[in-house]
Design a binder for these strands. Structure first.
Lengths: 163, 163, 163, 163
DNA sequence: GATGAATGAGCTTTCATTCAT
DNA sequence: CATGAATGAAAGCTCATTCAT
């Protein structure tokens, strides 16, 4: 795992300085996770077309997620790795979901309205997140197919989560 | 990350013993990854109904994956964590795919036959894997909804990957 | 061989501290060797009577070597042990000879002038070094015979290396 | 330092087998040291011309030492390394000298008779041993000068130790 | 007696954290 | 506050030794 000295180096501060901002490495990780989640949320939610139909809103969210992941490749890998590392506390994970409340709400409505599949929101969210990540990885590996894969990704996503 | 001493303890052997079997922790991880992948593949591929239609074959694979994940909770988390850890070498990852060749082939055929969505096999595989894992996690969290979620999972999966 | 923990203890620092100064134990050994060689060279070469005759210059070098070895007993044993340990890299060994260039030059001249035996400089150097060490060891074992043995040592040395 | 497993491998026996012959590695080293010393002594002392004059006897000893060292390069390095390693017990070192008693006696006589320099036997022995080793190393490095260096070695040796 | 897998103490090295500057 | 040298606990790994076969 990344050592504090490598983190400090990359952050351009002295090793000791990290600990004036974060009580411990564990805390640093929680805050980094939240920071990245908020960064993603910020990218996804700005100018969110609250009035558009479900498909358009979902596509907006999808495209913003993919764009963020492509422009923030390292950040995306870092969240993924942090998320899978077993180092993120449950509480942190919950907090990390908060900025996505508008999306959750949309999904809840979509289920209610019978547009989206009748599944738990957490289920639908996971599916979306995974398809977005899969798409990003494919675009990264084959940039010349970017547009095709982005369309494919949304096509699959929309089929997956609609009733 | 799991320390060699904790690994040894859990394996019920002395710390030094690990290194008579694996040259280094890195090698241990590669072999553990492969072992678990093969275990999953074994569970998925035994009695694979090669002659059934796509939907049935896919469902077979799906159900076996989910069952394996539920009966091997720790193993599943370990593969996931290993896989996301950045410790698995590309070569190992390739080897880990080999036992799933029959599934890959089925997907290739399905795409060819116009049954499955026209996407790269790696894309379809990822989607399947992710939906299986999402399903498993939901069943684990809410065992009383197991059956419903298993059906839901396959429903979403089939919609996601079909043309 | 001396463990890093024993080295750290003797140096009066924490074990980890060693590795802030030396990348590895191997590097530590190279630098220690060079340090000790330079210490010896410093003792031998300061106020070196460059103008005196061969015998006087050689005696100067001899006496300084022996004095250094007697006042730095541990250091002398350490260089000897390091040197024989197979841990000193060829490059390090070469560097260790540099501070003694003036002595080498004197020997080269002495051979040229027919004062010293017609032998490779490395041969003469080894003989000198060995006789010095033998003398030191005898003085250490029998301090009351110090003066006699020092004279004996030089007598033997001078006979050994002169034509 | 050489591990027991490497020693066993080189000896062509299983690792455990070493310990049926030697109680511990320390004991193994003492016995190896003695074995090598005896091998050298055997080479030096067989057909020792007890009746020849001092110079001839010394030359015999010298030539046999050098020849042994050249034919048993590894063994010579091993004794040297063992000897300098701090692992040879005083008692072992004493025992290692026993097979050379005839040489010691010759030196004692030589001193008595005024042929050899009036120095402790241990001093003379060290000088001889060191010059032999220096000679061997030079012959090894420059085999085409073997004969010249062997003669040179003895010339220096004889000058060094004679009165 | 010979074997080599298993052991755990001890090795070298890393690293999160502290603290004097 | 910011720094980075110093720390020592803990990591990964080695190896002398044991012992069931």
């Amino acid at each position: 795992m990344a050592s504090t000295s490598s983190i400090a180096r990359r952050a351009g501060v002295a090793e000791g300085t990290l600990f004036t901002y974060f009580k411990s490495k564990e805390v640093l990780f929680q805050e980094l996770y939240l920071h990245l989640k908020r960064s993603l949320a910020g990218a996804m939610m700005s100018d969110f077309p609250g009035e558009a139909d479900y498909r358009q809103r979902m596509q907006y969210v999808y495209q913003r997620y993919v764009s963020w992941g492509l422009s923030n490749a390292i950040e995306r890998v870092v969240v993924a790795r942090l998320s899978a590392s077993g180092q993120i506390l449950d509480d942190t994970r919950s907090q990390g979901m908060e900025p996505f409340l508008a999306v959750s709400q949309m999904m809840r409505d979509g289920v209610q309205d019978g547009v989206l599949v009748d599944a738990p929101i957490s289920f639908i969210s996971s599916v979306i997140e995974n398809i977005c990540n899969t798409t990003i990885e494919h675009v990264e590996k084959l940039p010349e197919e970017a547009e095709r894969h982005r369309q494919l990704g949304f096509h699959v996503l929309w089929r997956a989560i609609t009733a």
